[in-house]
Design a protein around this nucleic acid. Structure first.
Lengths: 340, 340
DNA sequence: TTGTAGGCGTTATCAG
DNA sequence: CTGATAACGCCTACAA
């Protein structure tokens, strides 16, 4: 690694002159600027970012803490984050909480001491269930900017990027009704997350306000993946159900596959709608009607807001952006078939 | 952010004493160590990592450059990387190349100047096709340790973590034969990657050496996702095929779904085997028989090797680890059904 | 237009 | 056992 000092020796100029020349300062004559820049380039000189960071008090790094990276939703958000950060010349430091609060906390601690200029956080399942979110507040408040996305918490007064989950679920439920379904169930494997709750509420509201019939809401909650088939099939047998709104992509696809294995026809016997528009949704059989949250856009917006906050630390008022959902109709539901 | 200097003022001790006390140096008396440590803790003091990095010439950050994070394989590798890095007290800086060489290069450049202590790289599709891998060599050789994983390149003399793709494909092909398939095709959408080539070779070899019949290898290559259905169905119609070995998870699942939509029965008409054991494979209908590469383990090993290299920069000989594949038999193939 | 000096927060060497 | 001093590599008043 060549340093300014080395260049200065070779070029017979002072370190500060070199530094200014490389930073295109007006103090330096054009001719020496040219000379220095050429030379530095040919030498493959690159400023040591650590030294710059120390001097300038910033890192140009954004810290990201997400529950996991396997779910396509989070993978897509991460993709959006990386892309926008890259555009804005920021690097991305990632930590995966595994939905574990301890890990989330330690990630936060390690980030919030000058490792990063700001944090993007989507809360662990464990954290969302709790009333106590001290571990988030403690290490954050008044230190560095933090933007929460998707999995947020009422008590946290940070900027947020969320999805209109209520609305998305409401419309999806209504769509099922409009296409002739009368006994619609809501299924969630991500219970206790803010997003699941919002979706449930949207569903429940729609059932109350829109249902021409008298059908009560049916909530199927599955807290362990191994129980998925048992619980689902039991529910199907004990109740009359002709449509399922699943709170996430994987559940929706599993629902389709399990029901088909058990002799149900999709969408004729049961219509299915999920959340998240990933590969699973697109390439399932039949392709899944889904509520897209525009995951990449969420990531993109989160970065934009965070960077704005980084550049403008005085602005106090929390920013709340809500990304509109969009229902993509495919063949897991009856009615018009606009997409394939 | 409190600093050593601030502590020194409050405690009436010199900066260096504080520093030593916090680092538990034997030079300092137990009593003052206690005093200083307690105090620093209550003050919420945390050393500024940037300053430490500058002083100590390391970052405790590992840079990761991957083609994408949407494919479950890479998502799982990333998960493994994050976990192991976290265990070893390293942070993870991530860059997504999008299979684009330019992006890969700029990520490499930005990392290889002291932003990270070492790099984990899986080559972009674009890069693998080329003979010219100068952009990788240039910014890397002799600078910081780099470990390639999965998508590697012959001409790069780095450490590598790879999968025994040849063997995995060979065995999968043989398994298809053993369960009564005679016209086995190989399908790839990731042509020109090293992994796809190895898998193809494993398949071809098995066809030559193991086939009781005279069946020639059939290679179906799909370079654009939109053409998937066309090419697949055309191939099915023009040739007699009773089994497909797909080079990745998504292709395998799409194959199953498309074939079923076109009236084929899986596995009775066509057996299908894929690569990667992710959610898609587990929850497809029927569940996919697949060659697991132990993606998390790849990530884990990559970190281990890299850290070893970081801690031991003198050791010159390249390390090459090969992770064994494992075939998980599910219901997309005939024969024994060991898993569900 | 160029150079000098100081400092960002730490750690390490060497005196005291 | 404690403290002054220098140094990591860079930037930036201020001086020349």
């Amino acid at each position: 690694m060549t340093t300014l000092k080395e260049l200065s020796v070779v070029l017979g100029l002072s370190v500060s002159t070199i530094s200014k020349a490389l930073n295109d300062s007006t103090e330096i004559s054009v001719s020496t600027k040219m000379k220095v820049q050429r030379f530095a380039f040919s030498y493959g000189y690159r400023p040591n970012p650590t030294a710059q960071n120390l001097k300038l008090g910033r890192t140009r790094v954004i810290g990201v803490i997400i529950p996991n990276v396997i779910d396509e939703f989070f993978a897509m958000v991460l993709h959006g984050i990386e892309e926008e950060a890259s555009n804005l010349q920021y690097k991305v430091l990632i930590s995966i909480s595994n939905d574990d609060q301890k890990k989330e906390e330690s990630a936060l601690i390690s980030m919030v001491n000058g490792s990063v200029d700001g944090v993007l956080l989507s809360l662990a399942k464990e954290t969302q269930g709790l009333e106590n979110i001290a571990h988030v507040n403690n290490f954050t408040t008044g230190r560095i900017p933090m933007v929460l996305f998707d999995r947020v918490h009422q008590q946290l007064r940070n900027d947020t990027i969320t999805v209109d989950d209520f609305d998305g679920a409401y419309k999806a439920t209504k769509y099922l009704m409009d296409t002739g379904c009368t006994n619609i169930a809501f299924l969630s494997t991500i219970t206790k997350t803010s997003v699941s709750e919002m979706r449930k509420e949207g569903y429940v509201q729609a059932m109350h306000l829109e249902a021409a019939c008298r059908c009560d809401p049916t909530i199927i909650e599955i807290n362990h993946y191994d129980l998925f088939e048992d619980i689902l099939i039991t529910a199907m047998q004990s109740q009359r159900i002709d449509a399922i709104l699943a709170a996430d992509e994987l559940s929706a696809v599993r629902t389709i596959n399990l029901l088909q294995s058990n002799g149900f026809k999709i969408p004729d016997d049961i219509a299915v709608i999920g959340f998240t528009n990933g590969q699973m949704a697109q390439y399932s059989n039949p392709p899944l009607t889904t509520v897209s949250q525009h995951a990449e856009k969420i990531g993109e917006e989160a970065v934009k807001v965070l960077v704005k906050r980084i550049l403008n630390p005085n602005y106090k008022k929390p920013i709340h952006r809500v990304i509109k959902t969009e229902m993509l109709v495919r063949r897991s539901t009856k009615g018009e078939k606009t997409l394939t």
